[in-house]
């Protein structure tokens, strides 16, 4: 099912320099929002990027559609480096990639009818020759997004439709230019629970039908499993683990992923909750220390190794990569968490 590579990301970094006060000296502060990530997205594939607030998952998504330019590294779309695109080529790229944002209440212009909202990209990209033809394309996109009959929605304003329908309109707007890939950033987290599943199913159907690859960004690892073929776990701007969704969820190799999976509440009152072995909270991404970025929260961290050398992503099992020096030892139970950490663990924040 997996086809050609659509997007290739090579060692991409995004650093933000913080503005300092007028009189402060010394080295400037740098936030490493994304710090050297690489992956490939294939035709018809859905990649889920999961992580906590501040892990860099949204910045990654925004760079893929060129809403942000990487500080360094390359992003290739169908073989061309997108940072070099200019003029018509750039416009063509913008037509081919689309984004669905988190909040459908903010991402749609309240003063535009739905027809106008969906018509704009067609006019900008000169898709369709006549007005009628464009209206047809709009109706088809609305119906693809599950809004049937599409004609009924054309004259309405965003406030006249429900939240779930609004997010479907945002998806229709992304579909209207027949994009070659879509980045969806937390597309259901603002929606009511009873309608979330409908929007998720819609995106899965679109992938089946149109073979559009998605990058699906979410903080909810259960949703990521439902949506994605592969899951990438990000922590402080780094990918710490990736592999097929089932491998990452059922056999997590990185101590961070293990805690993330163990922390998810499960809708079954009989299931016994596993102990979550992690300290503190995600630290500030400003001037992070050398070595493994997870060291401040890891109960397995070893002096002299983890605080010195940054672990590289390595393939521990076929197709399953992890960035941890001791992944195997932790997995086999050879490396035990430190006793003092276990005692403090509950009260470290």
């Amino acid at each position: 099912m997996i086809g050609n590579t659509v997007v290739k990301v090579e060692n991409v970094k995004k650093y933000y320099e913080l503005h300092k006060g007028l009189l402060s000296f010394g080295p400037s502060l740098v936030v490493k929002a994304v710090d050297g990530i690489s992956f490939e997205l294939h035709e018809g594939e859905i990649i889920g990027i999961v992580g906590e607030t501040g892990s860099g998952k949204t910045t990654t998504g925004r760079m893929l559609v060129l809403l942000e330019r990487p500080t360094s590294g390359k992003i290739y779309f169908e073989g061309t480096d997108i940072s070099e695109l200019k003029g018509n080529k750039l416009k063509e790229f913008r037509k081919n990639v689309q984004m669905v944002f988190q909040d459908p209440y903010e991402s749609l212009n309240p003063r535009f009818t739905i027809l106008k909202t969906l018509m704009e990209p067609l006019i900008i990209h000169k898709i369709g020759d006549t007005y009628e033809e464009r209206v047809d394309i709009v109706i088809r996109a609305l119906e693809d997004a599950g809004l049937k009959p599409g004609e009924e929605y054309l004259g309405r304003y965003p406030h006249e439709v429900s939240g779930g329908q609004r997010q479907r309109i945002a998806i229709a707007r992304a579909l209207v230019t027949s994009p070659k890939f879509i980045v969806a950033d937390e597309p259901v987290s603002m929606l009511d629970v009873s309608i979330r599943a409908g929007v998720l199913n819609l995106m899965l159907d679109l992938r089946e039908k149109l073979r559009i690859p998605f990058i699906f960004i979410t903080h909810d690892i259960a949703v990521a499993r439902y949506m994605s073929d592969r899951i990438f776990v990000m922590y402080l701007g780094k990918i710490v683990e990736y592999g097929s969704s089932e491998d990452v969820i059922f056999d997590p190799l990185h101590p961070y992923t293990r805690s993330l999976v163990a922390a998810i509440p499960v809708p079954d009152p009989d299931r016994k909750h596993e102990r979550v072995l992690i300290k503190g909270e995600i630290p500030s991404p400003i001037n992070v220390p050398p070595g493994c970025k997870f060291i401040t929260r890891c109960v397995y961290a070893q002096k002299g190794i983890c605080d010195v050398k940054e672990p590289e992503l390595r393939e521990v099992k076929p197709g399953h990569f992890v960035a941890c020096h001791f992944a195997e030892q932790i997995m086999n139970g050879e490396l035990k968490p430190k006793e003092e950490d276990l005692q403090k663990e509950e009260y470290m924040m």
Binding site: Q165, R196, A197, V261
Partner: peptide
């Protein structure tokens, strides 16, 4: 029933989610 079935389960069998049509 609709509410319980519209949540993806992290460990359960991966099956298509059902959802409640319409809105409140």
């Amino acid at each position: 029933e609709g509410l319980l079935n519209s949540f993806p389960n992290l460990f359960g069998e991966k099956k298509r989610l059902s959802f409640i049509p319409g809105s409140p």
